[in-house]
Nucleic acid binder design. Structure first.
Lengths: 189, 189
DNA sequence: TCGGTAGCGTAACGGCTGTTACGTAACGGC
DNA sequence: GCCGTTACGTAACAGCCGTTACGCTACCGA
């Protein structure tokens, strides 16, 4: 009935298929199977496969943004930074799905100008956000603040990739300790 | 004439195609075009597409290992560590190709048990190597040495990913400064 | 000189894909 | 009760893919 709800439901099926079979394994028939319908319904709610993919990614990004916005208050800027960082690594099923989709789209962006442009925007926005949070966490921000923030992002993406590719080798507690270890290095233990 | 030479030539074509069109865009016909032949020759030298891919990846890994082995002597363990780290990020065309292939195979390993097993072996071997190099770089190795080495690997993979996805945003000099910045954090400026 | 074999281009095959046209059943306004 | 529209399943279509069978050419030992 409700179009938006149907579309979100189909997007969830997309996440599931991509998570299980990769972006290569994402076919309209597989999406139909995961959503418990046929390709007819998918075709009815999305102009083409690209629109389906785009919607699935956008909804995922919106959920991620909502999670970060929903973070409560913290005792210190450092705690807030830590909490935001923890949203970027696969600590639970939702974040694992999030990181997985992100990684696939990142690789796809390499050969797709449209995806690349959007990735660059989001990436730089992410760096700016972390730069601000990191600045707040310092009593006296260092001169190489921006480079430190950039490395923080790179570390996060590396950890996310490790957690996505080999969840068994990078369980949530290890990821948390890894983030904390880097924070200790940056801000002092 | 020489089978191994022909195979390496075809593997180079595989790298080129994957770099330009992604793993999805890797078709035997595209490999043929890149190598200046038809699919007939490709089929003649490789049993199937999987054998071609495997060979291309193995040759790439061998080249990477050879590069690291070819690194000369250094004044300090820190310099040696720094040089090895610089082999892991896309500082030139060869390393960019290397990182690109690595990233694609990493994502492919997510849904392929065989690739996953090989990735885990290589990943842990890489961590052990860097742990050793990092230990040598310390006068007194810290208690969290292993975690620091793990984060070093994650940072490297994150930087590699950034350099692969957006080479313009992560030119070689930025990558070098990023690695050096982290080394300063780890070992002191 | 001749037969066999390696090297490789050509082409056809079946399978899978996204897209689209078609059919149908439910439903809501008049 | 009729008709248009929405919602969707079905199925056909063309295109691309990996694989493989076939055919030709060049070479090489006898």
């Amino acid at each position: 009935m409700d179009h938006d709800e149907r579309r979100e439901q189909l997007s969830a099926a997309v996440w599931h298929v991509v998570s299980e079979h990769g972006l290569d394994g994402l076919t309209l028939r597989a999406v139909g199977d995961a959503a418990g319908c046929t390709t007819g319904r998918v075709a009815h709610y999305f102009r083409d496969k690209n629109a389906l993919l785009t919607h699935a990614r956008d909804v995922m990004h919106r959920r991620m943004a909502a999670r970060i916005d929903a973070l409560g208050d913290f005792d210190s800027p450092r705690d807030r930074l830590r909490a935001v960082l923890q949203e970027g690594v696969p600590l639970d099923e939702e974040r694992r799905l999030n990181s997985t989709i992100w990684a696939y789209f990142l690789m796809a962006a390499r050969t797709d100008p449209v995806l690349l442009a959007e990735h660059v925007v989001r990436h730089e926005s992410w760096i700016r956000r972390l730069t601000g949070l990191l600045r707040d966490a310092y009593a006296v921000p260092p001169d190489d603040l921006e480079l430190r923030a950039r490395n923080l992002v790179a570390l996060l993406e590396g950890l996310a990739l490790c957690g996505v590719a080999t969840p068994d080798l990078y369980p949530p507690d290890l990821l948390v300790r890894a983030v904390d270890n880097h924070l200790d290095l940056l801000l002092g233990a």
